[in-house]
Simulated assay, not measured.
Amino acid sequence: MMFDVIQAVIVTLVVITALVMALKKYVPAVKRWQGNLADKLLKSHGRFAHWLGLKLHRQLSAAGGCGSDDGCGTCGGCSAPAAPAEKSHGVEIFRTRA
């Protein structure tokens, strides 16, 4: 009986974690919610709430990349396309193994 409860709790935590990770990846509004929650937790007086707010805030600042509105352009998606690589001017010979 006790193992069933523990198993249910573990499975629930795994499913909730997977759902949160998927939402963070595919729904940009979740980052805003996380930022608002982190700000509220940082303003609270509890130690655990303040610690959790710091952890959430660090995750947001470390995330960066596309969709983060930080303007860094690390993925290259915002910049001009790169120039095509120069082609070799020699004749390319392909040989098959016999």
Score class of each variant (00 low, 15 high):
G64C: 08
A63G: 10
P28Q: 13
A29Q: 08
R58C: 01
Q7Y: 02
P28G: 13
Q7W: 00
A62P: 04
Q59N: 09
E92Y: 13
A63S: 08
R58V: 00
I93T: 07
A80E: 00
T74R: 13
T12E: 03
G46Q: 12
Q34E: 11
P28L: 10
T74S: 10
L37T: 15
G76D: 04
K43H: 12
L60F: 00
V14L: 04
A22C: 02
H89N: 04
C66S: 10
G67K: 12
C66T: 12
K24S: 00
A98I: 01
A62T: 09
M1H: 06
L60V: 04
K87R: 05
R97K: 09
M21L: 11
A82K: 09
P84L: 12
P28F: 07
L41H: 07
K87E: 15
T17Q: 07
N36M: 12
P28Y: 07
F94N: 09
G35R: 10
G77V: 03
A29R: 07
A63M: 06
K43D: 15
V91I: 10
A63C: 05
C66I: 08
H45Y: 11
N36R: 12
G67A: 06
R97H: 04
P81D: 06
H57S: 15
A18S: 04
G67E: 01
W33D: 04
S44N: 07
D4G: 11
L56S: 13
K24T: 03
L56N: 15
E92L: 14
L19V: 05
L52G: 03
G77R: 08
Q59A: 10
R58P: 03
G73R: 12
K55Y: 00
E86L: 14
M21Y: 12
